[in-house]
């Protein structure tokens, strides 16, 4: 569940393995967390499984593709019959060439659906960046943010430093300015 409020503890790890272990531990604790990192690789995704078993993007892509194929066939046949002109001795509804258009539209609408569902589930585009985000998370450090009320923050800070976080700091509810201006 994404952290809607920006209050909690954020840690920055230099080593990916430590970061993975800390994130796993934080996930087990049931707290609302968010992990940042410059690298998107399958291994981490399988390990941390941030989403439900199946990623919703796949379903939407399939639906988009089927819609595209059906729409193409409907379009070509209806348009050919709307003003039936005989061409080169070919039948009015000559489906072989229509199949090509059907394939193209299938791929087209599948891509649109895929992009649409990705942007929806990744909640992009966002104009403001989350408070916990540090510029170095995009370069070489891995970040972990744990949403917790101030009283537990202290405990989480010790735990994170114990797990090898390079730096840990507290986040109070500071909304960022427009167009993603991260503070240094």
């Amino acid at each position: 569940m994404p952290p809607d409020y920006f209050v909690g503890v954020c840690a920055s790890f230099a080593d990916q393995k430590l970061w993975r272990a800390a994130t796993l531990a934080a996930q087990d604790s049931g707290q609302a967390i968010e992990a940042y990192g410059p690298v998107a690789d399958e291994a981490t995704m399988r390990l941390l499984r941030p989403h439900s078993p199946q990623n919703p993007v796949r379903l939407w892509t399939l639906l988009g593709g089927m819609f595209g194929g059906f729409a193409a066939f409907a379009m070509t046949i209806w348009m050919s019959r709307d003003w039936p002109l005989v061409v080169g001795g070919k039948p009015i509804v000559s489906w072989p060439p229509f199949i090509c258009i059907c394939f193209e539209m299938t791929v087209l609408f599948a891509s649109f659906a895929c992009m649409g569902s990705f942007l929806a589930y990744a909640r992009l585009p966002q104009l403001t960046l989350p408070a916990a985000y540090r510029p170095e998370f995009a370069v070489d450090h891995f970040g972990l943010f744990i949403a917790c009320a101030p009283p537990e923050a202290e405990r989480w800070q010790q735990q994170l430093t114990a797990e090898g976080a390079q730096q840990v700091w507290r986040i109070e509810n500071q909304p960022r300015g427009r167009l993603a201006l991260p503070t240094f």
Partner: peptide, 13 residues
């Protein structure tokens, strides 16, 4: 588009 490399964004990506 406001990409921050969070898990929520990287999984569907």
């Amino acid at each position: 588009l406001g990409w921050v490399g969070s898990l929520r964004q990287k999984a569907p990506f």
